[in-house]
């Protein structure tokens, strides 16, 4: 078997297709954009780029808007991580009990994931409309909590969380599916023997189930962190970083700098930051979550 696992020719042949496509179309351009981050360029073909060293990074780190966007994205990541994991895996546990009809539920719970963002964003706008127009405010009226009514997407205190919740709703279905797949892969025998040992409910979940699905959770964590870090679409569509810049995250800020204000260098610097920060966060997560996964 040692020979089988160290065949150089096979290693090369099997890696080649993926690496060629990936390096040619993903790595090459990101390297270019790292190079851009050391230049000043107004985005006009024919206008030479000017080398400015670390200046773009300097103005990025000096900008209050940038630090606000970092704070925002951390909050966005936290809300998404906590709620998507709890809701996604919670529902997966309920589904994995395999009661009659669970397939229908599983399919329906997944709907928001497949819905185009256009539809999702519009729906949530109707929910968050201010005054008595939005559903959420109408709901608060109905249950006598008028005092909580607000313009959810224009109140700087609520706007970011409102978008985060919409994103949670859009995304948790995917983690439910991952969790469900992991739970279904646990052989029935293990559960039954633990029952005989007297483990029930929560204890069973924490001592048996959780370790068995730990690997899958790790995947969910990494996907959520990197996905939320570079998330652009939902914030852009729902608030465009507003009201007055309050919901900007680095990716929307980068978009505005590069594509609207023609500061390609600064925009590239912000994207290098996004890239490095998600690498660091993902690495940290994997390290923190490292523990013996259970073999069975």
């Amino acid at each position: 078997m040692d020979q089988y696992y160290s065949n150089k020719r096979i290693v090369l042949l099997f890696l080649l297709p993926a690496l060629v496509i990936y390096v040619g179309l993903a790595v090459y351009p990101i390297v270019q954009s790292i190079v851009f981050s050391f230049y000043e360029w107004n985005g006009l073909q024919g206008v030479p780029m000017e080398y400015v060293g670390m200046n773009n990074f300097g103005s990025m780190f000096r900008s209050a808007k940038f630090w606000l966007s970092v704070k925002n994205v951390l909050q966005f990541i936290a809300v998404n991580l906590i709620f998507q994991i709890i809701i996604g895996y919670g529902l997966a546990v309920l589904l994995a009990q395999n009661r009659p009809g669970f397939k229908i539920f599983k399919t329906i719970f997944f709907f928001p994931v497949v819905l185009p963002l256009t539809a999702t964003a519009l729906l949530w706008k109707f929910i968050y409309f201010p005054n008595n127009i939005g559903v959420l405010n109408q709901l608060l009226n109905a249950i006598g909590l008028e005092s909580l009514k607000t313009g959810w997407l224009i109140n700087t205190k609520t706007a970011l969380n409102a978008v985060s919740i919409a994103n949670v709703w859009t995304g948790f279905g995917y983690h439910m599916v991952i969790g469900f797949a992991a739970l279904s892969a646990i052989p029935d025998g293990i559960m039954e023997s633990s029952m005989i040992d007297g483990a029930t409910g929560f204890r069973q979940f924490f001592s048996i189930t959780l370790p068995m699905i730990w690997e899958s959770m790790k995947i969910s964590f990494v996907l959520l962190i990197t996905g939320s870090m570079k998330n652009f679409d939902i914030i852009f569509v729902m608030t465009e970083g507003g009201p007055n810049g309050a919901t900007h995250v680095p990716s929307t800020l980068m978009y505005y700098e590069a594509f609207k204000y023609d500061h390609y260098g600064l925009g590239s610097a912000i994207s290098v930051f996004i890239f490095v920060a998600s690498l660091a966060l993902a690495g940290l997560t994997i390290r923190l979550m490292r523990r013996e996964s259970v073999e069975y």
Partner: peptide, 12 residues
Amino acid sequence: LMENCAGLTLDM
């Protein structure tokens, strides 16, 4: 101007 108009869209 309507209260909270900052939350209204053009089509609204």
